[in-house]
Design a binder for these strands. Structure first.
Length: 297
DNA sequence: CTTTTCTCCTGTATGC
DNA sequence: TGCATACAGGAGAAAA
């Protein structure tokens, strides 16, 4: 549920509070948090001890710390928050959270970094970095709309070739990353497009408009510190953003559409929920009246 | 190859 | 009050 803006808020917190410090020791508890690190949690902890944090980076919903080992080599400590993951910068004396899965202690005895995750869909792993300082294990994740490498025209061309629902494409991190259920619904509401319309049936300008709205809504949310529905989406200090007050579709079932007043509907989609305006976002493109056969005529 | 479905997890809300 | 069920849903494996 933390999507691009929420993850970026966390990244900035790490840049402020963790970059430049050296990890003295770490502990990963349980098998799930480090499940993508095959040698196991103890090995992961041992491999990052003594490393200095050089930068905090992000692509889409992935977040990583670029680490410099004492021998001069670089590696990445990659993290994904999943649905309920939190990275918190806290006083070492603070009591352990119920779902504390990882703890990084620094050699300056300052605040420690904790990974807390109620549902443990998230996790941490070690990765090799490519020449652009992107972890090799996320090479399949496409650039997100807020990074310079993002090529909107190329994404539009790729979308146009797809025979799947436009919302499914927005959620495909291999096509464009960072967009989750919340911002997909918001972008589609702004673009006045129903999420179940097929990419291949939409015009390139329409696809471009959807994509541009996704970029804009995520940028606005970032300006508000992200979206929060409950205490699960927080920055490194445990505080929530307030973009949820600005949502026009997601979670708004039954409330009047801000454009036309029609009650927002909720529909099942991909075993999830989708929210849209029945009037502004018709399922099929409205055809000219003269071309539309009327039943019974 | 492309596209869809399933699975992982636990706290909260709702219904009987 | 207690218990069962639905829901939140990102990502990757597996299936179609």
């Amino acid at each position: 549920m933390p999507e691009l803006p929420e993850v970026e808020v966390v990244r900035r917190g790490l840049a402020d509070h963790v970059v430049g410090r050296t990890i003295a020791s770490a502990r990963f508890s349980g098998e799930r948090v480090a499940r993508r690190h095959l040698p196991g949690p103890a090995d992961l902890a041992a491999r990052i001890a003594g490393n200095r944090v050089e930068s905090a980076r992000r692509r889409g919903k992935y977040l990583w710390l670029v680490l410099r080992a004492p021998d001069g080599s670089q590696q990445a400590l990659l993290a994904h928050l999943g649905m309920s993951g939190q990275l918190l910068v806290e006083d070492p004396a603070a009591p352990d959270e119920k779902h504390l899965h990882a703890r990084l202690v620094f050699d300056d005895t300052g605040p420690e970094l904790r990974f807390v995750d109620q549902r443990t869909f998230g996790g941490m792993a070690l990765a090799e970095l490519d020449d652009d300082l992107v972890p090799e294990t996320i090479a399949h994740i496409a650039p997100d709309p807020l990074e310079p490498a993002f090529d909107a025209a190329a994404v539009v061309r790729a979308m146009k070739r797809r025979h799947s629902a436009v919302k499914r494409a927005l959620l495909d991190q291999g096509l464009v990353s960072g967009v989750g259920n919340i911002y997909a619904d918001e972008a589609l509401w702004r673009a006045q497009v129903h999420g179940e319309r097929l990419c291949s049936a939409l015009t390139k300008p329409t696809l471009a408009r959807v994509l541009e709205h996704a970029r804009e809504v995520m940028l606005e949310a970032l300006g508000h510190g992200g979206t929060s529905f409950d205490a699960l989406y927080v920055n490194v200090n445990g505080a929530s953003g307030y973009f949820d007050r600005s949502l026009n579709a997601y979670g708004q079932e039954g409330r009047p559409c801000a454009r036309c007043g029609t009650p927002i509907r909720r529909e099942a989609f991909m075993n999830r929920s989708s929210y849209s305006c029945p009037r502004c976002q018709p399922r099929a493109r409205p055809r000219r009246v003269a071309d539309t056969p009327r039943p019974g005529t």
